[in-house]
Design a protein around this nucleic acid. Sequence first.
DNA 1: TTGAAAGCGTTACCAG
DNA 2: CTGGTAACGCTTTCAA
Lengths: 346, 346
Amino acid sequence: MAGLPRDSGDARDTVVTLARSLGVAASTVSRALRGDPRISTKTRRRVEALAAERGYAPNVLARTLASGHSGLIALSLGPISNPFYVELMQEAVIQAAARDLRLLLLHAGAGPIEDQTAQTLLQYQVDGCLITSAELSSHAARICAVHNVPVVMVNRVPKLHASAIACDNFLGGQDLARLLLGGGHQRFAIIRGNPDSSTSIERERGFAEMLKNHGIDFDLRINGGSTYEGGFAAGRMFAEMPRDRQPDAIFAVADIMAMGVVDALRIGGIRVPDDISVVGFDGIAQGAWPAYAITSVQQPIAAMVSRGLDLLTARIGTSTVPDEVVLLRGELILRRSARLPVRMAA
Amino acid sequence: MAGLPRDSGDARDTVVTLARSLGVAASTVSRALRGDPRISTKTRRRVEALAAERGYAPNVLARTLASGHSGLIALSLGPISNPFYVELMQEAVIQAAARDLRLLLLHAGAGPIEDQTAQTLLQYQVDGCLITSAELSSHAARICAVHNVPVVMVNRVPKLHASAIACDNFLGGQDLARLLLGGGHQRFAIIRGNPDSSTSIERERGFAEMLKNHGIDFDLRINGGSTYEGGFAAGRMFAEMPRDRQPDAIFAVADIMAMGVVDALRIGGIRVPDDISVVGFDGIAQGAWPAYAITSVQQPIAAMVSRGLDLLTARIGTSTVPDEVVLLRGELILRRSARLPVRMAA
DNA sequence: TTGAAAGCGTTACCAG
DNA sequence: CTGGTAACGCTTTCAA
């Protein structure tokens, strides 16, 4: 006999026990419970009533075995020292539940997804993968491709076989540059995140291009690793520069770095934004703290998750839908960390 | 025929296909793969070799159906605006993977676990629940109790049928009070988190009791809701008090609130720690940021998760192990937000 | 040491 | 509209 002798009193209901109690077939119960239109209203009512009364919960694992769909989405989170990913996760939990999908938390952190973890994708028959930031290892990507598991990257444009949803980082970078130009700034610096990530690259590109359009070049480009500490180190470097070579506007490509920059500048005796303006990107909640008040581009997190799940569900069970990359426009949030023009342009 | 016509080329291996290729029985493959000692070394080698070559991954869901164990742990996170829970989650992901357990992310946020979500526990046959902070709804708790699913609460002493692992909040509160007394402080205030949570209550109790032992009473007790904003509001209130009624030491029972307090005090023109000392609890990474440098009690997160998983695994599959509450000692972290005695006592 | 077969709970197909 | 039955992939008991 298979099956562990779970606790004795624990006689859990199944479609079979329900069917017996009602004097119908198991298949009828199964159909009734999932609203198959062929079942008579009367029968369905009876089945639903008994199921509710007994607190019946279908065994999803058995269902998966028979149907091929687990309702499981693998979630892989980027470095969660960046609150942006935490907000993304929170939103994903809420929206996945609303769509009757469950999240299998595969990975959280800066590192790559380990090959061993990738096995889990197969073992648990996940219907799809939601990846934030960390690139899938090529091993994991191959597994997904071979087994036809759709992959959606959030906040990252994919190199591999995958769909993606992201904020339009290029436009956002442009918006920030335009804002700073309007504020009369002249000497610019940028603090990159991970210099390989599409996110960081695009933001920088938009920013630099807009400046270039106005005849401005700059070469102060530092890598900050998308961490507070990285931003802080960069800020300290700027604070220690001779006054005449200091930038008067700094773009940190992630709010969390911008916060580090602000702290370092202030500790160095530099006023923000009076001496130097600082702008960030992401729109994390902490950026609004009064000690920072970071001017930023707010990523549309709810919409990103929603569209991301759309992309995913559209590809579950078929291999005919081609990969797709969706860019959503972020919103400029004006706060106190950046000087504004005396007369704000529209 | 059951099963969706997954993609055609996608002929995924099973124990049966492996068995056929080797000319042995499926049961032999199954046994070999799990190291059943009855299988000859030679046969096992052959099986393992082929499995590796074909990239075979067992279908855990089918295994669950047969064995009763899913390897799935339901994870329910507290309000993640508090980075403490994020650190806890990160640690849980790492340690669960190391034990070959997977985390099903059920809930994240301040609210209670919804009844609908509780159904998921059953549907996915989770082996156990790891709950941080948010109390399980009584409905969910009943489900776990009836179906013999062990529950471990982290950072929270349970009211219901559950085991628990937490920092010794009472002792931590005492430690902080002792430190502040040593620093010569005389007028105290406390900012509570959620006033119903055991965590907040115990920290307050330890703090107040130690002061009482030194003949000191205080009645400045504010609810801060365990958020930055709550701490900020409380801090502003203190800043606006007449100087002679202001406290000279504030204990915010969570670091995230302490950060809000510090910001509000400084904006109000009060120096920290020169005018007022502020201490927190949790030891979150952000508390170490140079702008805050919060003196705090560091919770032993890794140990908490590790022991928490111990408690859980010990109770999976049996109902004979009684519930257990484990308290771990936190570590006092001295930083710059609190004045120290001129001669620091040991 | 290995094989055969039953069973886990569900869904899907084919009859009726 | 409903019933019966096979099948999903694995583990486990029983027999050899």
